[in-house]
Simulated scan of single mutants.
Amino acid sequence: MGRLDGKTAVITGAASGFGAGMARRFAEEGANVVVADLNGLGAEEIAASIGDSALPVAADVTRRDDIESMIGTAVERFGGIDIMVNNAGYTHKNGDLLEVDEETFDLVFAVNVKAIYHATLAVVPLMEERGGGSIITTASTAALRPRPGLTWYNASKGWAVTATKSMAVELAPKNIRVNALCPVAGETGMLARFMGEDTPEIREKFKSVIPLGRFSTPLDIANAALWLASDEAAFITGVALEVDGGRCV
């Protein structure tokens, strides 16, 4: 038996990077997976690579109606939702905090903050009906050990960690566990924005503060998410799990 046999997971931002890694890994362990992303074509490609247990959904997580439609589609196809992974994320380019325009600021908080609120309102009643569930948010080491140059992104991820802990306490009586992942910078499409620009010198600078000496990979994050989603973590809630090669030590 797989570790997620019989369970259904919705994963946002799943057309690439950490989200795609989670979708593949969850499916390997028996889950039905909703591959949700603003990039609908990318979501279709990832779902096709997984097979019949994956359902692609084009969704803009900044829009409540999109999230409600995504959740409704998941329930219609698979009968319910056991795992909600708030993985979609956005960042401003590394640089002076005074130079981040308001439109970019609003988008960072719409994707990294408000989307969690929308998803929670949609899935908690469904999970309660099923007797419990697991909510996982991809936060960041930026929430715990913030770097200069990413101030507003750092703040959005700090919110995600605080929300995770508060939700965990409030939803525990409903048997809904809530946890966050805190990855260090990874080999994903947002890496260049995190660094400001992508050069060998800047990569080495970022790696130099990671004791294990490399960036995170989608598989690193997927394995951590798998554990949090599985029954092996049945007594784990309110945790901000560092998946960072020692960065936050």
Rank of each mutant, 00 (worst) to 15 (best):
E204C: 08
E204G: 11
K205C: 01
K205Q: 14
F206S: 06
F206W: 15
F206R: 14
K207G: 14
K207E: 12
S208M: 12
S208V: 12
S208I: 10
S208Q: 11
V209S: 14
V209F: 06
V209E: 06
I210L: 01
I210F: 05
I210Q: 08
P211F: 08
P211K: 11
P211Q: 02
L212F: 13
L212R: 15
G213W: 01
G213P: 05
G213N: 03
R214F: 01
F215D: 01
F215H: 10
F215E: 00
S216G: 15
S216K: 00
T217R: 03
P218V: 12
P218E: 01
P218N: 12
L219G: 08
L219S: 04
L219H: 06
L219W: 00
L219R: 15
D220R: 11
D220I: 06
D220Y: 09
D220H: 00
I221D: 00
I221L: 13
A222I: 04
N223Y: 13
A224E: 10
A224W: 02
A224M: 00
A224T: 06
A224N: 10
A225R: 05
A225E: 10
L226V: 06
L226A: 08
L226T: 05
L226C: 00
W227N: 04
W227P: 04
L228G: 02
L228D: 07
L228A: 03
A229E: 01
S230I: 09
D231C: 03
D231Q: 04
D231S: 10
E232P: 07
E232W: 02
E232S: 13
A233I: 09
A233H: 08
A233M: 10
A233K: 04
A234G: 12
A234W: 00
A234E: 01
F235N: 06
F235H: 11
I236D: 02
I236M: 15
I236H: 05
T237H: 09
T237A: 05
G238L: 00
G238C: 09
G238N: 03
V239E: 10
A240P: 14
A240W: 09
A240E: 08
L241N: 10
L241T: 08
E242I: 03
E242W: 01
E242T: 15
E242F: 00
E242G: 08
V243E: 02
V243Y: 12
V243C: 11
D244V: 12
D244M: 10
D244S: 14
G245M: 13
